[in-house]
């Protein structure tokens, strides 16, 4: 009667000590690994790249297009975009629609694109030009678009060498779920321009920005003859 529990206890004691030692070792190992993980996790975050100031470019030279007549004057297709105040000078590629019916993003992050379904820049209506804010690695062609201010000039060079000169009227940011389709793509009575890029917070789960930055501009009046 007395030896049995004694034997039982001694057997348990034999098993327990290595187990306790093993738990101790595993616990210390887990704590060590976790502290290392903590250190890595706290280092992987970063702040947004500051936009800074671009070196302003000189205004391009050329024949400035006059306001389009409602009886329709031919307007040549757009080939280049120049925004001196934010240092943008790029060729313009052509953008269509994605299979889901959204605006097709330019294939290159360093070139802007004119949406071919919108009026040509300088014709009656709002011409739409889109460009990436960034690539996976760094700034894109429209990285500094949000720095544009009312009155800044935007130049579109057309295939015939003429320049459509626009003046920024406003710069606004919208959640993509509340994109102002009518204001960007809807009918407009004058020659206008909409520049579109991304902005706001980046959603790492979907790989997309949550907002769009839109610059509204109208054709500048031609000075002199």
């Amino acid at each position: 009667m007395r030896t049995r529990p004694g034997r039982h206890i001694s057997a348990l004691r034999v098993v327990r000590r290595p187990i306790a030692a093993a738990v101790l070792a595993c616990g210390l190992l887990a704590a060590g690994v976790s502290v290392a993980g903590l250190a890595v996790a706290s280092q992987s975050g970063r702040t947004a790249l500051p936009a800074g100031r671009a070196r302003p470019l000189p205004a391009p030279l050329g024949r400035q297009a006059s306001a389009p007549r409602p009886t329709r004057t031919h307007v040549a297709r757009p080939v280049r975009l120049i925004i001196p105040s934010i240092g943008v000078r790029t060729r313009l590629i052509h953008l269509g629609l994605t299979s889901s019916g959204a605006l097709q993003p330019p294939a290159s992050t360093s070139a802007a694109g004119w949406y071919t379904g919108s009026p040509r820049p300088g014709a009656i209506g709002a011409a739409v030009i889109g460009g990436h804010i960034d690539s996976l690695l760094g700034p894109g062609v429209f990285f500094r678009l949000h720095l544009l201010r009312r009155g800044d000039r935007v130049y579109v060079r057309r295939a015939d060498g003429s320049l459509a000169v626009f003046q920024v009227t406003s710069v606004r940011s919208y959640a993509k779920t509340r994109f102002p389709t009518e204001a960007v793509y809807g009918p407009a009575p004058g020659a206008e321009l909409r520049l579109v890029t991304c902005g706001g917070a980046f959603d790492y789960a979907t790989g997309h920005y949550l907002s769009n930055v839109i610059v509204y501009a109208t054709l500048a009046r031609r000075h002199g003859p």
Partner: peptide, 13 residues
């Protein structure tokens, strides 16, 4: 809807 014009290379992470 909106336009997908960025890959997040300059975004805060």
């Amino acid at each position: 809807g909106g336009a997908q014009m960025g890959f997040g290379g300059t975004a805060a992470r």
